[in-house]
Design a protein around this nucleic acid. Structure first.
Length: 848
RNA sequence: GCCGAAGUGGCGGAAUGGUAGACGCGACGGUCUCAAACACCGUUGGGGGCAACCUCAUGCCGGUUCGACUCCGGCCUUCGGCACCA
């Protein structure tokens, strides 16, 4: 899972034209009061020495498992990674200071396409390339000052990890949850190889420019649709964004309908009927044709000799269109007649069987009944090919005229031209027709999902080998568990076509059958990397366990994940696969819960120069130069201050200076001498205390909601107000010490290094990160004066300072007495007066 | 195309249906300096007014409400995903 932009494309040089105004040279950065490099180094070393970030399983405090999506080791940690990791690190630190035993680990999603591309273009072995990248990124992760416990790192391309992918595969296989079936792949005829979607540009091979065709291959699937209904149920998560739940719900796409068969027995084929799925069985009498997907298994047999050439040409053409294009409602609906007919059993009519690419083989039965009067796609299709359009659901007050578009409303119309069902209201018609069909055994009510089973086969090298052996005698044989892992061979020849070296690795390919000991060949496909990321969270509890995928006792102690954060681009696939895996693992008896992530938060992405950062655009910001000059804390703080984490933010070289200036001011203020301050009873003590408690409240509430930007603002406002008070010595020593301590504690999760330094310099012992957050006291945070806002007909007319405990009557009297208000009320009738106590707002409504 | 989001000053953004523009950047004016940098002080949405203040303004068009950036309906634009990038 790449966090942020890590394009896996073969290196494409950045077009010169896009390197424009936003490509600044070395930015001018604010000089700091301290040496950030030295300070970062000092504390990172100290924390390592003291093992401050070691996570202890036996810690008596309540556990908190905070997880950030692990990155793909693309080579360098860039600002996009920091944007994902720094705020989540701050949250984990925040939870630790709230009294939890926090596990906030990090690992690497180390299998994937870019490593193979590096092998092809640069001749580096994927393993070498990946491990070197991981080593470099480990150092960069340390430079952020994160609390990752390095003993808990997970690296998915190591056999100690991926053998458990294989183990899961075998368990799924035993349960029938892993199975082999035919599915299309992108095929480049020139390269003679399978292409990833990413390698297909405008329907052409990225490398050769040849038109990519879809080709059927036998591939492995996981039966995620068996869990479709449970995946629609979000009642066991605590806090997930509604939009993610909605996207997953729509992705799963449950629809209730009827599977209805058309009679093709007079054609003399093995299949006597043609099955279709419809959600509108009430329109069955309006069927004037049937359309099959070009990939439908019966197309070949149904095509008459006279139509053979036309159908074949059409299928070839359809093989070049992408699924997104085929589903477009704007695209012209095309098709070709097979020459055969099917019988609609409800009225005995013969209807033409067509092939059309707006029907997908992967949805429903791969065949649809064409009801042009009541489905817009069918309507367009019928218009184009001059097929009958028969109204069977009359809209209310229907005048009998031909439709100019399909009438698709459900429920309002009534059945016509529908035999014995004529005159029934549409909804009753649906029930009656469905009952009739079930009674006649022509079809059944059924549920179809848009979601398909998970295709896990990849025709690639750099992935987990699928633990299956093919024996001529015994057929498909799972590799016995005691022979795991099936190790990815290191000797591999990478051809410039991108073809998987596994197919030609004799030592890997040839093996013996685990059943009969005869000669056999291994499956050479590897697994989708989403398999790795579907259960990695459970591995962190026991990352080096070798008796199973994880130590079930440890996982029971830590899992499920309390807070998961990562990019919204994973809203559906990764998160759905991980939910499926969790339920499947639960059914294997390894865990006793069904949801992997109790709370979910998706951050936005960092924009620079108006675009998401990407290597190909040439607008990537390397954090290293900023870290060197300003230190990790200021980069962390700026990323959090830039904008709401959820919405992403716009990187600005000057903007980071604003945070640097504030850190300078805060540094001066917190370390300023207190000699000139009175010992007690200073004029502003109450104000300072109130400000402190208000700020504690704001910051804690903001961080709980991941609103780091306003949390930082609140602390900026606090120092802005404190500076003149300290300058004028209007605060006493004790109150000042408390306020500085509170500020440092609040800032510590966000800026761990400088707060640790200031904590030490202000005379505290022990790490600031081992402290608890300050608590606020509502009575100390309370105001004693408020501004009463007075509106007349919704427009603000006056603002008056009043005591905080003003009553409603007093507020109303004050409002009506205001000489800014009377001109608007004079000679008019006061309709009503609204008082909003929480807002100190009076709204006077006048008439006339 | 489908699914999901987002549009507020010159810029990043703030605002449980209740003072629109907090906080910060930039810009302008000033202090300090031989000069600059740093720092500090002040101004900074548009229009009108000497001023008090008035008025317009949260992508566009409508609606609900005493009151709408916020809720509802319809558009426009941008972004994320669409099953083999991760």
């Amino acid at each position: 899972m790449a966090l942020g932009p890590c394009p896996g494309k073969l290196a494409i040089p950045a077009p010169e034209t896009t390197r424009s105004d936003h490509m600044t040279t070395t930015p001018r950065l604010t000089p700091l009061r301290y040496d950030p490099t030295e300070l970062d180094r000092k504390w990172q070393q100290r924390w390592a020495q003291d093992n401050l970030n070691h996570v202890n399983d036996d810690d008596p405090r309540p556990k908190w498992f905070g997880l950030t999506m692990y990155p793909y080791p693309s080579g360098d940690l860039h600002v996009g990674h920091w944007y994902a990791m720094a705020p989540s690190d701050a949250h984990a630190r925040f939870m630790r200071m709230k009294g939890y035993n926090v596990m906030h680990p990090m690992g690497f999603d180390a299998f994937g396409l870019p490593a193979e591309n590096a092998a092809i273009t640069r001749g580096i072995h994927p393993h070498t390339w990946t491990m070197a990248n991981i080593e470099r990124m480990r150092g960069q992760l340390r430079s952020m000052g994160t609390i990752y416990d390095r003993e808990r790192e997970v690296v998915t391309c190591l056999p100690e990890y991926y053998r458990w992918n294989q183990w899961f595969f075998l368990q799924f296989y035993k349960k029938g949850l892993a199975y082999r079936a035919s599915a299309p792949v992108n095929w480049c005829p020139t390269c003679q190889t399978v292409l990833a979607n990413e390698q297909v540009v405008d329907g052409k091979c990225e490398r050769t420019g040849d038109v990519v065709i879809r080709r059927q291959m036998n591939q492995w699937f996981f039966g995620i649709t068996k869990y479709a209904d449970e995946l629609l149920d979000f009642s066991n998560v605590i806090e997930w964004p509604d939009r993610i739940k909605l996207m997953q719900t729509n992705w799963i796409g449950r629809s209730e309908g009827v599977q209805i068969s058309f009679d093709i027995s007079d054609l003399g084929l093995d299949d006597k009927e043609l099955r279709t799925f419809t959600t509108r069985i009430d329109t069955i009498f309006g069927v004037t044709f049937v359309v099959l997907a070009p990939e439908h298994p019966l197309v070949e047999q149904l095509t008459t000799p006279g139509q053979h050439d036309a159908v074949h040409a059409y299928i070839q053409q359809a093989g070049e269109a992408s699924e997104i294009d085929r589903l477009s409602t704007e695209r012209e609906k095309t098709g070709v007649f097979t020459g055969s007919y099917a019988i609609n059993r409800l009225n005995g009519e013969k209807v033409q069987i067509w092939v059309g690419d707006y029907v997908l083989a992967s949805y429903g039965t791969g065949a649809v009944m064409g009801v042009p009067a009541h489905d817009q796609r069918d309507f367009e299709f019928a218009k184009k090919y001059d097929l009958d359009i028969r109204v069977v659901v009359a809209p209310p007050a229907y005048d009998g005229q031909p439709f100019t578009e399909a009438y698709v409303d459900k429920g309002a119309g009534s059945q016509v031209n529908s035999g014995q069902f004529d005159g029934l209201p549409n909804t009753d018609g649906y029930k009656a027709i469905a009952d009739h069909i079930e009674a006649q055994e022509w079809g059944t009510r059924t549920i179809t999902y848009r979601m398909r089973d998970w295709l896990v086969s990849r025709q690639r090298y750099w992935g987990t080998p699928i633990p299956i052996v093919y024996c001529e005698k015994c057929g498909t044989q799972p590799v016995p568990e005691d022979q795991l892992p099936v190790v990815l061979p290191e000797d591999a020849e990478f051809k410039p076509t991108g073809e998987s070296p596994l197919k030609y690795n004799e030592g890997f390919l040839h093996t013996t059958c685990p059943n009969c000991d005869g000669p056999a060949t291994r499956e050479t496909d590897t697994m989708d990397t989403f398999v790795d990321s579907s259960w990695y969270m459970y591995r962190y509890a026991s990352p080096h366990f070798d008796q199973g995928p994880f130590d079930t006792a440890k996982t029971a102690q830590w899992a499920p994940v309390d807070q998961y954060t990562g990019g919204a681009e994973h809203a559906v696939m990764h998160l759905l696969y991980a939910r499926f895996f969790t339920k499947a693992i639960r059914d294997l008896g390894l865990i006793d819960f069904g949801e992997p992530f109790l709370r979910l938060f998706n951050q936005g992405s960092v924009i620079h120069g108006g675009h998401k950062m990407s290597k190909s655009r040439g607008n990537v910001i390397a954090p290293d130069v900023y870290v060197n000059d300003l230190g990790a804390d200021i980069v962390r703080l700026y990323l959090m201050f830039m904008g709401p984490w959820e919405g992403g933010g716009d990187w600005s070289d000057t903007g980071i200076n604003g945070v640097a200036r504030w850190v300078n001011r805060a540094w001066d203020l917190c370390l300023a001498s207190t000699d000139a301050l009175p010992d007690a009873d200073a004029a502003s003590d109450r104000d300072v205390t109130r400000l402190t408690h208000q700020t504690i409240r704001r910051v804690i509430q903001d961080i709980e909601r991941f609103k780091y930007n306003t949390a930082v603002s609140a602390m900026m406002e606090m120092t802005n107000q404190l500076a003149p008070i300290h300058e004028a010595a209007k605060v006493s020593k004790g109150v000042w010490r408390d306020t500085v301590s509170s500020l440092l504690l609040l800032l510590a999760p966000l800026a761990p290094h400088i707060t640790e330094e200031m904590w030490e310099r202000t005379g505290h012992t022990g790490s600031i990160h081992a402290q608890n957050l300050p608590a606020w006291d509502e009575s100390l945070a309370a105001i004693d004066e408020a501004t009463l806002i007075i509106q007349v007909n919704g427009k603000v007319r006056d603002k008056i300072t009043v005591p905080a405990d003003i009553t409603e009557d007093q507020a109303k009297q004050t409002a009506l007495a205001s000489d800014k208000v009377t001109p608007y009320t004079q000679g008019k009738t006061i309709d009503k007066i609204v008082f909003v106590p929480a807002r100190y707002l009076i709204s006077v409504v006048v008439k006339g």
